[in-house]
């Protein structure tokens, strides 16, 4: 393998590492934009992973599997939504409880799927385009879900910025009392955001169990839901930056593995710290000059809304 080949192949690895984070982070971003903090991303992801895998194995239909992954994530998200939006329970604690619940539920469902294989999701191949050296495979040779993740990043950015519905969502997140006074259905908007966030986390999980490593093992999300949560903060609630953050994190994770393979005498633990440390440093650099970072957090984030009238 020569130099360019390594770069291309590393880029492909980075795309795979970043994509589940992109899904989950974008979903959580929309949820938080609506003023709800759901710390249960890990739980929704892992449920999405097993349900998608189980569907894939049983029906051998990748599209159906992706769909079921999203739906089951949304379903678990809906449970969270019911608790925090209807029963007005504490969002932080409910989200954490959702993680415990999701991991347990996925293990229960997944019992019969350990050691089972799945063919995976086919990659795109467009004659000529995919064959272009270097950028061909990167741009035109990915699986469906990678393109979905890019589309979501662009779509969500556009939705939040340029659509009326996006404006309402942001208004609800900024000041739910004012939004309510104007006549926006705060709870309904938030519920939809939470369902969407669940679906996206489900897609992130589905990506893991269908594409990244097409198999099922318990706890296979291995903390990626938490990273996705951190990326939303890192992104200052901006979709484009969340996308960038996921690739930055994924990129450094892969690069540190490459450094190890080359055999530099740096303790592997130190290298493994890099993605976390770099994320902190970049966040500090971005936030240091202004108070804007705080301001970009939705003002009603995590606060309970009750319509008095």
């Amino acid at each position: 393998m020569d130099g360019t080949d390594i770069v291309v192949s590393a880029a492909l690895t980075i795309i795979t590492a970043a994509t589940p984070l992109v899904f989950a982070a974008l979903g959580e971003l929309v949820v938080e934009k609506s003023g709800v903090l759901n710390l249960g991303v890990e739980g929704m992801m892992v449920v999405g992973a097993i349900m998608a895998f189980a569907t894939g194995v049983t029906t051998e239909n990748a599209f159906l599997a992706i769909l079921v992954g999203a739906l089951s994530g949304a379903l678990v998200g809906g449970l969270f939504g019911f608790l925090v939006l209807v029963l007005l329970s504490n969002q932080v604690a409910t989200g954490l409880a959702l993680t415990i619940f999701g991991i347990g539920l996925s293990a229960l469902v997944g019992h019969g799927f350990v050691g089972v294989t799945f063919a995976g999701v086919p990659s795109l191949y467009i004659p000529l385009l995919t064959d272009i050296p270097i950028i061909g495979t990167i741009l035109f040779g990915q699986d469906l879900m990678v393109y979905m993740s890019v589309a979501f990043a662009i779509g969500i950015g556009w939705f939040l910025k340029s659509t009326r519905a996006g404006l309402i969502l942001r208004a609800v997140g900024e000041n739910h009392d004012a939004a309510h006074a104007i006549g926006y259905p705060v709870i309904r908007v938030r519920f939809m955001a939470v369902l969407f966030g669940g679906a996206m986390a489900g897609l992130g999980g589905a990506y893991l169990s269908l594409v990244y490593t097409p198999l099922w093992v318990e706890n296979m999300t291995a903390g990626r839901g938490w990273i996705a949560l951190a990326l939303v903060v890192f992104a200052a609630w901006r979709p484009g930056r969340a996308f960038f953050g996921a690739y930055l994190f994924g990129g450094i994770t892969i690069i540190q593995l490459h450094v190890q393979g080359v055999g530099w005498a740096i303790p592997s633990q130190l290298l493994s710290m890099l993605p976390y440390l770099v994320t902190i440093i970049v966040l500090v650099v971005i936030s240091r000059d202004s108070g804007k970072q705080r301001l970009s957090a939705p003002a009603s984030l995590g606060k309970i809304f009750y319509a008095a009238s």
């Binding site: 590393a10 296979m220 994770t253 892969i254 490459h258 393979g261």
Partner: peptide
């Protein structure tokens, strides 16, 4: 740095193959 993280193990395998 893990006994068990399918994603990371796959990443490591890809990295080694690339190298």
């Amino acid at each position: 740095n893990s006994w068990f993280d399918p994603g990371k193990e796959a990443d490591a395998a890809k990295t080694l193959i690339d190298q």
